[in-house]
Design a protein around this nucleic acid. Structure first.
Length: 501
RNA sequence: GGCGGUAUCGUCUAGGGGUCAGGACACGUGGUUCUCAGCCACGGGACCGGGGUUCGAAUCCCCGUACCGCUACCA
């Protein structure tokens, strides 16, 4: 079994295409087949090497690897269509000689006029066949006169085209409704429907798994296989991925490319797992499965037929799952750019990263995405007593006598305890409770406001030890803003206790 | 317009001639005696419409409707 993913390098890797790549990969890896990457860059105007590079980067990031491709040599190269032009040319010549293709001199304007005409008369809007009956001599004469014709495939109209789609079953087209497609443009570049056939055949692809938008192209391609004497592969057409309004997923729905989801802080294993769930089910009520297990269970005949809506809420849920599974060190490294982006200056060294990793659990367990981590942990870096009181409700609470008592007791306990770990913090909290007779919210809320300068955040017995651990970081740890928070908190507590707010 | 494809909770889906039509996300309620988030429990919520076949249809067939795709010298 040989499958392929054949993106056109004209932009970012869209999640819909990523899903197509994934399904191909799952099939190949699950069946011990080969997965090849082919770049379809025959549209010289729109194709760029930059796009190719980001697509390759994004596929790698997702954890999809290939056995042959533009960067991995194999027996069926080259793997960029722009480097295979001689192949398309030679098969086109063959088709021309066999009279299975012909030169077409129709102008774009003429073609467009015919199309409009066909539309209003209710006829199939395809090529009328004007140049179909031009003799070779006539064609040669016009070329000698300087005309630059395209080459069209002469679609045989003597039989229907029927194929068995691996996900949809039998699909049938009447050949009369298929117009003669251009296979080589006037500029010498092959057209898509022709290049894919030559490439898939020469690359010995056995299963063409692609988007549903290609299902109507399949009969043309099948006829080309026939004309070229190639054995056609098995086709499988995957349903499309839609936005919440059931329109094709596009920028106005928000993120659409793999790169955008990466920068929003989704983990690659989460995106992969979620994408696999659109239009396919691993069965047995399982949904959260690693990619290898997905590959083990994958099969084309359980792929769904209908379009799926991309649901970012569910992606977020999947991401939370993988966030909890990920190692704290990895998460810490991934989180740094988000801190910087959120305005928390840092360039942590090994020691700083270690601190971040140790503090990661209290954030990663309660967040959807990496980009929400800084907000969750900001209390460690930007203590600001003023801000704590700018919230009117918090300010009112802190003015109450009970809160003042808690805060006063806390200030004293804090001065007596140099560094709090989880146990010591609990002891401190217990002593404050004993001294004030307060408990529950009346006890903990003032403690939170004083120590974190915030009204909400992670559990205190996690947050407080982190504050004290941070205070011990040396200045060269690359984490400015972390020192002195405890001192500021004690000062704030004293001020509050004395009614100076 | 022509041709093709598709249709189960709001969403992703399981199932498929006789089921209490199952699960997940989201949503609602309660719990977790600091908060937000998380987590746990419970709850409401679906077979597009009409015909046919059949003892029986959500499941098979036909028609309709809706949506999507193709109809390019884009891919």
């Amino acid at each position: 079994m040989r499958v392929r993913f054949a993106p056109s390098p004209t932009g970012k890797l869209h999640v819909g295409n990523a899903r197509t790549a994934l399904f191909n990969w799952l099939l190949a890896r699950g069946q011990g087949g080969a997965f090849v990457l082919r770049i379809e860059d025959t549209d010289a105007q729109r194709s760029t090497r930059e796009s190719e590079a980001t697509i390759i980067h994004d596929l790698r990031w997702l954890g999809l690897d290939w056995d042959e491709g533009p960067d991995i040599d194999g027996a069926h190269g080259p793997y960029r269509q722009s480097e295979r032009l001689h192949l398309y040319q030679s098969y086109a010549t063959e088709l021309l000689h066999a009279d299975k293709a012909y030169h077409c001199f129709c102008s774009t304007a003429q073609l467009e006029a015919e199309r409009q005409e066909a539309l209003v008369t209710g006829r199939p809007a395809h090529y009328a066949g004007t140049c179909r009956r031009l003799s070779k001599e006539q064609a040669a004469a016009r070329m000698a006169a300087g005309a630059r014709p395209a080459i069209r495939f002469r679609v045989p109209h003597d039989h229907d085209v029927v194929f068995t789609d691996a996900v949809r079953g039998e699909v049938r087209f009447q050949s009369e409704v298929i117009g003669d497609p251009v296979i080589v443009r006037a500029d010498g570049h092959p057209a898509y429907n022709y290049a894919v056939v030559v490439d898939d055949a020469l690359m010995e692809i056995t299963h063409v798994i692609r988007g549903e938008d290609h299902i109507s192209n399949t009969p043309r391609q099948l006829l080309l296989y026939e004309a070229l004497g190639f054995t056609p592969p098995t086709f499988a057409h995957l349903s499309m991925v839609m936005g919440p309004d059931h329109a094709p997923l596009s920028k106005r729905h928000g993120a659409t490319s793999v790169g955008e989801f990466r920068s929003k802080g989704y983990l690659p294993e989460a995106l992969v797992n979620y994408l696999a769930l659109i239009g396919w089910s691993p069965g047995a009520n399982d949904e959260l499965l690693p990619i290898d297990e997905l590959a083990r269970r994958f099969s084309l005949d359980h792929v769904g037929h209908s379009a799926g809506v991309f649901d970012e809420e569910k992606l977020a849920w999947v991401n939370r799952h993988y966030l909890k599974l990920a190692g704290p060190r990895r998460l810490a490294e991934l989180a740094v750019p988000y801190f910087v982006g959120a305005g928390v200056a840092m360039s942590p060294n090994a020691r700083g990263l270690e601190f971040l990793a140790a503090s990661m659990a209290m954030a990663s367990a309660s967040v959807d995405r990496l980009d929400q981590v800084p907000a969750r942990l900001a209390f460690l870096f930007d203590y600001d007593a003023e801000r704590a009181l700018r919230d009117g409700q918090a300010a009112d609470e802190m003015r109450m006598a009970d809160a003042r008592a808690v805060v006063a007791a806390l200030a004293e306990e804090l001065t007596a305890s140099p560094r709090l770990d989880r146990e010591k913090f609990r002891e401190v909290a217990n002593r404050v409770r004993a001294r004030t007779g307060l408990k529950g919210k009346a006890l903990f809320h003032p403690i939170r406001v004083v120590l974190t300068a915030r009204a909400e955040g992670p559990e205190l017995d996690l947050a407080v030890p982190a504050i004290d651990r941070g205070a011990e970081l040396p200045p060269d740890a690359g984490m400015p803003g972390i020192q002195g928070n405890r001192e500021r908190a004690v000062a704030f507590a004293r001020a509050l206790a004395e009614g100076r707010d």
